[in-house]
Design a protein around this nucleic acid. Sequence first.
DNA 1: GATCATAGTCGTCTCACTGACGATAAACAC
DNA 2: GTGTTTATCGTCAGTGAGACGACTATGATC
Lengths: 252, 252
Amino acid sequence: MSYDPSAFPPFAVTVDLVVLTVRRHALCALAVRRGEAPYKGRWALPGGFVRADEDLTQAAARELAEETGLHAHAPSVPAQDNGAHLEQLATYGDPGRDPRMRVVSVAHLALAPDLPAPRAGGDASNARWAPVEELLRHEGYGRDGETAAPLAFDHAQILADGVERARSKIEYSSLATAFCPTEFTVGELRRVYEAVWGVALDPRNFHRKVTGTPGFLVPTGGTTTRQGGRPAQLFRAGGATLLNPPMLRPEV
Amino acid sequence: MSYDPSAFPPFAVTVDLVVLTVRRHALCALAVRRGEAPYKGRWALPGGFVRADEDLTQAAARELAEETGLHAHAPSVPAQDNGAHLEQLATYGDPGRDPRMRVVSVAHLALAPDLPAPRAGGDASNARWAPVEELLRHEGYGRDGETAAPLAFDHAQILADGVERARSKIEYSSLATAFCPTEFTVGELRRVYEAVWGVALDPRNFHRKVTGTPGFLVPTGGTTTRQGGRPAQLFRAGGATLLNPPMLRPEV
DNA sequence: GATCATAGTCGTCTCACTGACGATAAACAC
DNA sequence: GTGTTTATCGTCAGTGAGACGACTATGATC
């Protein structure tokens, strides 16, 4: 209970980012290649130290901008324009999670629409969107040599926690729209759910559900045929953030 | 991105605890009186520094034991014996949240059955169970002079976040049983929901719902009349942790 | 231009579950 | 006994989800 300033051990505090997007029907996360020991050459989550005068959320938003150019939204605001949803995920502080010193990492979760190629400090070869399934396939039997090695530090755990958060949160919130561009169709939104949950959903029931939930979607009046087939109405995210009743994730 | 050990600012890392219980039909939190500046004499959440060789969860469990004598459970295990549910809540790291230095606090949420009086380092007058409604009533117009002042630091925000977590989590998990003793009746469990949500629930529908959810409750065979009225069956928590379909919180 | 493939949209039917609420049961206080 | 309290069982109507049929509007192919 004592706050004697000489009595507490010093920690380094970092933010690590789980940046998720949906590309080619797969849930993908941003990974950067480590340029230094430890885990040199291995893939890791983007992140960095929290500065002395910086809030944790500010630090996460700064790192996100540095890695992706994305502008972060406050958690309550639905993703519009070119912004990403950003929220705190959890904090990881095992002694020994970093072999060099005692580091406590405050992980954040960011959800972004499909983006152009990532840039890590301008060096594209050191950053990539990788399917989370691939990043979490630890054993390294995949044919892609680059991702055969598990993520550095405890980042596999952090990524898994972030994915699980995203999977559960799109059930009861309108967060899935954060994966979509400003204007999107019901089918595009459905493909987001299908990619994040890894299941197939009935297009007719999905359409009835999302268009029937007040505040979830607002029609823009336009239509598009970019998915082929019959033209689909365009929507943008409505003001509702909590869905009641929630979307039901098929299970069992 | 650089990990130059001389390039990061040092932080103090603490754990703060939101310890909730249900007493006399009210959701209560453990509060301790601060013995030192800043906020000397004000009520605060229990907490303390994370030690150099300690995991965050270990630190939270240690603080919990020091303040209450409670033995913490792993998050996956339902509360049995004399243990409490413990899970990480969120991390608070505003510069300036502690006027003396840069402190990052990893808040944890603990749920406990109704306990004997708290003990803070053996001094009972410096620890108490207070209704959360009272602790969060910042303005200080209450007639109880002791709680007229808001909680120290950003602890009102932390407490509010913890209460909100508990309120939402008993919807879709069996966590409400963590507020009950090992053996309890359906009526006692219902009073937990009523206290946490601050609503009245229909006893008949509640009974149908909880006894009809597989894995939620297992009858022990015994009965009790400790609540008065007709004897009620005793149950203990079943193995299920996720309730599907969830309990529905009345709203609107 | 007819046909086909693809996606979107509207409807219908059934079943499960909930909320409202009546009725009965088993204890205690008087 | 009578009244009070709490527990427990039943009924009924309304809501919403899953399964799935039917129709529509576009581009691609022959």
